[in-house]
């Protein structure tokens, strides 16, 4: 996973094979990924709406979530977790490893919490596993890349090299991963709907402005980790803001759809998107900078 298939020297100055890491190094990397996965997703493993969605969601919804997660992992491993010279084979391999670890970790935690057992119907058990393990897998992917300092310093292209360019796929992928990681902890809850129902037009408008302002502060005005030292030109700033907030809103819509919160009323659904869009936009901008691993 992450940057593991590169030649490297570890903290002790030991050099390694040009292509293959030792099993010990791999084990450390998995440990790092699992810790990262749990840090990002443990609240969701403790959230009853997530378990419920596991057995209330139609199987085709779950299927789509598995496919979307795999695509996000491919994107993250391509743009956020590995060097530019990684082949798609390596990216695909890493993504399968992360999915597998996500499923195993989720199974163990849910079993430990007695949320799954072998007496329950298999579709209930698999449903819960699917819903939880997908977020855990993204957390593992990000954790693997972000929690290992010594290896990531080498071979990665920072934002300085990319600054000023418009790499839409890169930005969209990392923004989507950040938005989903940050906002998925509140997306399944009823509170989103309650807040949307209880918000007037002025509240909604202010929420949009606050989301944009927070994104702008994070991306351009706070020397956030991973942010550029110098502010980019205005068109690039507008582009970054538009990408960040658009992805946040789309990720919100996707999460609302998956958790069965899309309402018959377009206005209410739009309000829910804006409400959920606040944490999603923070994730989309801050998460994007953080998980870009600068």
């Amino acid at each position: 996973m992450g940057e593991k298939s590169h030649s490297s020297s570890d903290n002790n100055g030991q050099s390694h094979s040009a292509d293959v890491k030792s099993a010990t190094e791999t084990l450390k990397e998995y440990g790092r990924g699992i810790v990262g996965g749990l840090m990002f997703s443990l609240p969701l493993l403790y959230t009853m709406e997530m378990w419920w969605r596991g057995f209330t969601a139609p199987p085709e919804y779950l299927l789509i979530i598995v496919v979307v997660t795999y695509v996000l992992l491919l994107g993250y491993n391509r743009y956020g977790g590995m060097r530019k010279d990684s082949s798609w084979w390596e990216v695909a391999k890493d993504s399968f490893e992360e999915l597998g670890l996500g499923i195993i970790v989720s199974f163990l935690v849910l079993w430990l919490l007695n949320r799954i057992n072998f007496q329950m119907p298999h579709n209930e058990m698999i449903g819960k596993l699917v819903v939880e393990s997908m977020i855990v897998a993204i957390g593992i992917s990000v954790g693997t890349a972000q929690l290992g300092q010594s290896e990531k310093e080498q071979g990665k292209e920072g934002p300085e090299e990319k600054g000023g360019t418009f790499d839409v796929l890169h930005d969209v992928t990392l923004s989507a991963c950040g938005a989903i990681l940050f906002a998925s902890s509140v997306a399944p809850t009823m509170e989103i709907k309650m807040l949307a129902v209880g918000s007037g037009k002025l509240n909604i408008l202010l929420m949009i402005l606050i989301s944009l302002a927070l994104s702008a502060v994070i991306l351009f005005f706070s020397n956030f980790k991973g942010a550029r030292d110098q502010r980019p030109p205005i068109p690039k700033m507008i582009y970054d803001l538009v990408v960040s907030y658009s992805v946040a809103l789309l990720a919100s819509l996707g999460m609302l759809w998956f958790f069965g919160r899309i309402e018959n009323s377009i206005l209410l659904t739009a309000s829910e998107m804006v409400v959920l869009g606040i944490p999603a936009s923070i994730g989309s901008s801050a998460g994007r900078l953080l998980i870009d691993g600068q």
Binding site: K4, S5, D19, V20, K21, S22, A23, T26, L27, Y30, L63, V66, V67, Y70, S87, W89, E90, K93, F96, E97, E98, L99, G100, L101, I103, I104, I126, L129, V130
Partner: peptide, 23 residues
């Protein structure tokens, strides 16, 4: 280009089997 050590191969195989079975 793609190289595995035994642990990576095990986890990759397990991940592929679990994910594809789930799908």
């Amino acid at each position: 280009k793609v190289h595995f050590n035994w642990l990576q191969l095990t986890v990759f195989s397990l991940g592929a089997i679990l994910s594809l079975s789930m799908i």
